[in-house]
């Protein structure tokens, strides 16, 4: 396997790991959304970049890129909707 592709996928997996650790450790719904949206989006980006490099086909690479764009759009929108729903139901953000 191409070393660059492997490095991208390992980096992507590390971002997913960090996002999941954040999901488990962060104190409330709003802080957890930060971990999920940011770390997972970049993690998926690196993972798909690695897969695209390994695929060796422009058509597959383009499909992976479109997938990533759609996931970015969906996760940013969904995280806003969840954060708003929590606020409007009276969930006060956790404070130190």
């Amino acid at each position: 396997m191409n070393a660059l592709a492997l490095a991208c996928m390992v980096l992507g997996a590390l971002f997913f790991l960090a996002g999941t650790v954040g999901l488990l450790r962060f104190p409330d719904v709003h802080a957890r959304l930060h971990a999920l949206t940011k770390a997972d989006n970049v993690g998926l980006g690196f993972l798909l970049l690695g897969l695209a490099l390994e695929a060796g086909s422009a058509a597959v690479a383009a499909k992976l890129f479109v997938t990533w764009c759609l996931v970015l759009l969906a996760s940013a929108s969904v995280s806003h909707v969840i954060a708003r729903a929590a606020l409007r139901r009276g969930v006060e953000p956790w404070q130190r």
């Binding site: 590390l14 971002f15 960090a18 996002g19 650790v21 954040g22 450790r25 962060f26 104190p27 409330d28 709003h30 802080a31 930060h34 971990a35 940011k38 770390a39 989006n41 970049v42 993690g43 606020l87 953000p93 956790w94 404070q95 130190r96």
Partner: peptide, 24 residues
Amino acid sequence: HSLLGAVDVARRALAPRLRLAPAL
């Protein structure tokens, strides 16, 4: 900036002590 954001939140998640002071 999304890359910076991911690195920032990953560091916070993996830090031994959680350094969060959330605010709205």
